[in-house]
Design a protein around this nucleic acid. Structure first.
Lengths: 336, 336
DNA sequence: CTGTTAGCGCCTTCAG
DNA sequence: CTGAAGGCGCTAACAG
């Protein structure tokens, strides 16, 4: 900067004003042009750290992700990235696959001032972490999970989404519909389960306890969960699964048991993913507004950082959940 | 810091020395303890920006990823994260799904001094970007792709990996083996193709031009590529595919054509992924040392930043590629 | 319209 | 073994 100022024959502060497009001060057009061209010629780029030091903001946002492999995070990340960029921020993603690392990341990013705020994706909010986060709650937004206390969070309408899927199964004539959902202590899993229960209740259908299986979101867990269901005396004729990955595992279990899909069992999975279309058979999914979830969350975080009041809980309802009908669903066999 | 110094009754510089565990200066044990406890009590955390400003290093590394959905990146990220942490760095991941953003990210991260160096994953190195990167080549390591010029890059032994897979197909008795690889202008795709050719040549098998299909790494592209192959007069009896995702698409095309796998066509895919085990049929894959790739790349970047000389091209050869035999391969039919 | 003056929070010689 | 002073690169309030 001093370099640029000297070669342009002006004061550093003037250079700063010009390059920052400071609206408050008006600079002579001639000097402005001179400064801009010399800056370009010298390849000058302002140092973000020095700037952060004085302005005490870094203009970068962090996004903590528990599992980079998850299909769902791709869209969330994109949405958040775009929203951040629109607001002039840089978005950096941090892999917090193991729990301990999340707290560590929080420390090194937020506390040490590397980022202005943090988006925390579901699945890594442990009690431990919660404590330290509480301290700095004014810089975090939790995503895809409701949180006790008064920290802001953004969720999808998981309930409505799952209900949509189950209603379709009911419409096709299914009565014995099971739900393969996520861990009982995970909020999103519980909300998806509630959507399933709503649909069943509305149709006057019974929900045997054994038809609700709390598995995980991964292939192996879906596989194991399906095994459990198939071992029942009256296996279901249709299944609502809480994730595409779990559904892939469940499909594998069905194939192993020589069941035809959709003839023997219909499948609906929560969230869409590119792979769904290429499975055997192509998987019917419930597409959720993940991009918008990320976008909204980042927007809220920016608002929060700017001192605006934001709701403790926001639900992303647009666009609405959409059912993507593929070949994994059909009417049940006549004798069912 | 001033706060802590005052309450502990010492000078800020002493606090700095203690908290930084400065090896050069020895501080009285009594004052040391006092400083540490008061710092903890006050919840003091050093400001990374101020520190960066004076030391002109941020102790953070960036990793540019073109497509977060790719299975391969999960392990790369983990490896890089661990290596970074071991060296005292924080790793942040940046989604550079579209090309333009990569240059932008480079600017905002490296040039503005938010990170000390950048790991650039394959697939986003365009000519455009290369120019700006060249300027700052001393802070970048390219990953999974060889680069013209003299910028350091780290790759796997794609050639050996693919060769391993094809050799297995040959051993099973296949002669009509096709290769569904990535775009011709992508270095990794070309190297995998070379591995295929090596294996074929070593076995004295012909490679009709039509048996080499340059598709992409995505499901849809694998699907389209397979369609092309199936339209041939003499479709192959076995296939080596350059990615699991493309293989999923190709499998779908085969199912659509009512082909039995592995009876009609055997499949081997490059890289392993959790989903491989749950496909119909479970997919034989070539597991590559992706974690180590990320780990090595981050290590090299750290070396580079510390002024050590590093090779322009490093190949990660340990652990060696492993063939994970699953049910997608079998001997060809007798009449083939 | 532009230059001057401080100071952001920390580290690093140099003295004591 | 510890305190004092200067400066990292930039911005902001105040003069001119």
């Amino acid at each position: 900067l001093a370099q640029v100022a000297q070669t342009a024959g002006v004061d550093p502060s003037t250079v700063s004003r010009v390059l920052r497009k400071d609206a408050n001060t008006r600079v002579g057009e001639a000097t402005r042009q001179r400064i801009i061209t010399t800056a370009a010629k010298l390849g000058y780029v302002a140092n973000a750290n020095a700037r952060s030091l004085v302005s005490s903001q870094t203009m970068t946002l962090g996004l903590l992700i528990p599992n980079m492999a998850g299909f769902v995070y791709v869209d969330i990340i994109r949405g958040a990235e775009v929203a951040a960029r629109e607001a002039g921020y840089v978005l950096v993603v941090i892999d917090a696959s193991d729990q301990g690392r999340a707290g560590d990341a929080f420390h090194r990013l937020v506390l040490e001032g590397r980022v202005d705020g943090l988006l925390i994706a579901s699945g890594i909010v442990t009690d431990n972490l919660t404590d330290s986060l509480l301290v700095q709650s004014s810089r975090c937004v939790v995503l895809n999970r409701r949180i006790g206390g008064h920290r802001p969070s953004v969720i999808e309408d998981d309930e409505a989404g799952m209900q949509l899927g189950v209603e379709e199964l009911i419409r096709l004539g299914h009565r014995r519909i099971a739900c393969l959902t996520g861990p009982a202590d995970v909020d999103t899993a519980r909300r998806r389960l509630r959507g399933y229960r709503n649909a069943m209740r509305n149709a006057g259908l019974p929900v045997p306890a054994s038809y609700v299986v709390h598995a995980g979101f991964e292939e192996a867990e879906g596989y194991a969960g399906m095994k459990t269901l198939l071992a029942k005396q009256h296996p279901p004729t249709a299944l609502a699964v809480a994730s595409v990955t779990a559904a892939i595992g469940a499909l594998a279990a069905c194939h192993e048991a020589r069941l035809q899909i959709p003839e023997d069992i219909s499948f609906v999975a929560f969230h869409d993913a590119p792979v769904a279309e290429y499975l055997q058979p192509p998987l019917t999914t419930i597409a959720m507004p993940l991009y918008e979830l990320g976008h909204r969350a980042a927007n809220l975080l920016v608002d929060l950082l700017n001192g605006r009041r934001i709701p403790n809980l926001s639900k992303v309802t647009h666009p609405q959940p959409r059912l993507l009908r593929r070949k994994s669903i059909a009417a049940p066999r006549a004798d069912d």
